[in-house]
Nucleic acid binder design. Sequence first.
DNA 1: TGCCAGGCCGGGT
DNA 2: ACCCGGCATGGC
Length: 217
Amino acid sequence: MSLFKEIFQKLFDHFGKQNWWPGETPFEVCVGAILTQNTAWSNVEHAIENLKKQNLLNFESLLKASPEIVAQAIRPAGYFNIKTKRLKNFLEGIAKEFGTFDALFHLSKDHLREFLLSLKGIGPETADSMVLYAFEKPVFVVDAYTKRILVRHRLIEEEADYFQTQEFFENALENDPKLFNEYHALIVMTGKNYCKKSKPNCAHCPLKEVNGGPILG
DNA sequence: TGCCAGGCCGGGT
DNA sequence: ACCCGGCATGGC
């Protein structure tokens, strides 16, 4: 078994199934992906709740809602002004290019990804989170935790960019959206245990050794 | 109190 | 091409 499969297995055995993404519909997943940019999910939950209460958590309603209303609703998620713009860019981009949200389901993975990345406010992680968790196409989502863990264990260089890190996983694993789904969720769980500033082999952090050593401390 | 959170953009050098 | 500040709330 490959190293990356072994790591996955140990994380899965330790943490169990994560049932990601926390969202009831593909549209909700997309909105959550934007709202959680550099933000704790607990804050996003309040914003999502507000949108639900006001019946704004669907494509048509959110598209029509005024920026002021949206900003007020998503306030708990932080960066509410810029995130309002990003949501609007997303919604208006879809309306202009495809007409409906559901039309996105007919796009190929690469076309979908390319379209999302063309929108201001949607970068690689947000796009890939949508592609994987809303549209269930096989891309490996990389985030700050992913890089932090790999760098800590000297599996990648500090300088590795998003796409290099992503290839690292995608080359090592079968192209399975369910696997990518679970793996990324487990990495987020694991990453919370790594302090941000510590050097490799920080005493507080788990996963002290990967090659030949115990994965979980 | 300060630091951190499931990024991304835009302006300066 | 890099580097860096701005964006903002809530939890520990």
